[in-house]
C-alpha cells in the first residue's frame, strides 16, 4: 500500500495490485498510466483516478448496448496492446463529461475505453466511425432533474 494526495485534498490508500494500467495513458494524458477505480457508493458511474497525475480523474460508465447499440470491436493492434485473448473479458466504458453542459452529462462515444478485466490493461480507443457522437446526451444533469421534481 502507498498513500497519494488527491486533487480534492484527501489521502487515499492504494492497493497497488488493484491498479489498472493504461500503457498509452488517456488521450492528452500520456503520463497517466496507472489508475484506481473509485465509486460514489451508488449508481453506475465510477471515477478512474490516475495515481500518477492528480488532475487525470475521469468519470466513466459502462457502454449500455441496449441504448447505444453494440460496443465497438477491438482492432488487432488494440488486442495486442491489451494482451487480449479469446478467453478474456473486455469491458467497454464511456468517458463522461459533466462539466461542459449545464443541462446534460455528456458521453464521448468517439473514444470509449476498453478494459481487459483479466489483465487489468486498458486503453482509450479512438473510433473511425464518424457517426459516433463526441458529446452524446447521456443523462440530464442530476441538479436539473431535482429542480424539475421540486
Amino acid at each position: 500500500m502507498k498513500k497519494n494526495k488527491s486533487a480534492w485534498k484527501a489521502e487515499i490508500e492504494i492497493d497497488e495490485a488493484k491498479q489498472l494500467c493504461f500503457p498509452h495513458g488517456m488521450v492528452g494524458f500520456p503520463e497517466a498510466k496507472k489508475y484506481v477505480v473509485m465509486n460514489s457508493g451508488g449508481g453506475d458511474i465510477v471515477c478512474f483516478q490516475s495515481t500518477e497525475q492528480v488532475e487525470a480523474s475521469f468519470l466513466m460508465t459502462t457502454w449500455n448496448e441496449a441504448d447505444l447499440g453494440p460496443a465497438p470491436s477491438l482492432t488487432p493492434d488494440q488486442k495486442a496492446a491489451l494482451e487480449f485473448s479469446d478467453t478474456h473479458n473486455i469491458l467497454w466504458l464511456l468517458v463522461l463529461n459533466p462539466f461542459a453542459d449545464q443541462e446534460w452529462v455528456l458521453a464521448n462515444m468517439q473514444a470509449p475505453v476498453a478494459l481487459n478485466q483479466d489483465t487489468g490493461l486498458g486503453m482509450q480507443c479512438i473510433q473511425a466511425d464518424p457517426r459516433l457522437e463526441l458529446r452524446y446526451h447521456w443523462m440530464p444533469q442530476p441538479s436539473r432533474e431535482a429542480k424539475k421534481a421540486a
Binding site: M26, C47, L59, V95, N97, F99, A100, N108, L134, P142
Partner: peptide, 25 residues
C-alpha cells in the same frame, strides 16, 4: 478533438460532482 474533450471532462472536481449527484438521487 478527443484531447480537448478529455481535458474538458476533467475540468472540475469529479468527486464533488459525484457527491452532488448521489445527494440529488
Amino acid at each position: 478533438r478527443i484531447q480537448a474533450e478529455n481535458c474538458s471532462a476533467v475540468n472540475g472536481n469529479v468527486m464533488d460532482w459525484l457527491k452532488g449527484a448521489s445527494n440529488e438521487e
